[in-house]
Simulated assay, not measured.
Amino acid sequence: MTGTGGYPLQPAGPAKRPVWVVGGVTVVSFVVLLWLIELFDTLTGHRLDDNGIRPLETDGLTGILVAPLLHSNWEHLIANTGPALVLGFLMTLAGLSRFIFATAIIWFAGGLGTWLIGNVGAPTYNGVIVETNHIGASGLIFGWLTFLIVFGFFTRTVWEIVVGVVVFFIYGGILLGVLPGTFGVSWQGHLCGALAGVLAAYLLSGPERKTRALRRPVRPPSLNT
């Protein structure tokens, strides 16, 4: 079969799915995974929860890989589900590759920070710090939150700035969770996740910052007379 002028017609490729559809499916799949893990954890007597981040312990380093996937109970998971769906979806609108890289930076940098300072402010017993075990997706959520708030100011993209401002007004209040306060809540994980989100936003805005720098006019050198 040929087209106009005798050239063979190229078969149409598969329709490309909109970014918001791919992003939505990705984030929902991640949250479903969290629920399946918690279901398995509940059925096995919460044995998985012991695999969180245990600060300054060598075997506690492996918790960096799995801590965001674990939750202490259903209430803990439910509290994280809504923000994870909303903020995770907004993250994907900046591009799926950026979402993946940002999540990886927040996951590992935030986890490492928690491993380093997770015992700060921990209770003591007979002068010995009580071992802490940090689990939950909150650190990741705090990282997504700060990423969304500051990313637009790094890229100078109007719609990303608007998203950041809106997100700040809706969810900014939870940033108080980076401060010591509620017993049993990992403010250290929140703080490290939030800082990792800012780091991810800065690193991943590199192409826009570089382009903006190249557009700046070069001032001629001043000559003294």
Score class of each variant (00 low, 15 high):
91 M>E: 03
114 T>Y: 02
88 G>S: 13
152 G>Y: 03
86 V>E: 05
68 P>I: 03
146 T>D: 03
71 H>M: 12
153 F>Y: 15
38 E>L: 15
135 I>P: 01
68 P>H: 08
113 G>Q: 05
107 W>K: 07
129 I>W: 01
97 S>Q: 13
61 L>V: 11
128 V>F: 08
159 W>K: 12
146 T>Y: 03
79 A>Q: 08
151 F>D: 02
161 I>S: 02
121 G>H: 11
111 G>P: 09
76 H>P: 00
93 L>C: 12
83 P>H: 07
113 G>A: 12
56 L>V: 10
72 S>M: 10
77 L>P: 00
36 L>G: 15
113 G>T: 04
159 W>T: 10
69 L>M: 15
96 L>A: 08
99 F>T: 00
157 T>E: 13
82 G>F: 13
102 A>L: 06
117 I>F: 15
86 V>C: 08
65 L>R: 07
114 T>K: 00
148 L>I: 14
84 A>Y: 15
139 G>R: 09
114 T>E: 07
111 G>C: 10
130 V>I: 15
128 V>W: 08
124 T>P: 06
159 W>C: 04
67 A>S: 15
60 G>A: 12
76 H>N: 12
67 A>Q: 07
58 T>E: 07
88 G>Q: 09
77 L>T: 03
77 L>D: 01
155 T>L: 08
82 G>T: 11
157 T>G: 00
80 N>I: 01
99 F>K: 00
150 V>N: 02
77 L>N: 02
35 W>I: 12
165 V>M: 13
166 V>F: 07
164 G>K: 01
66 V>C: 11
83 P>D: 12
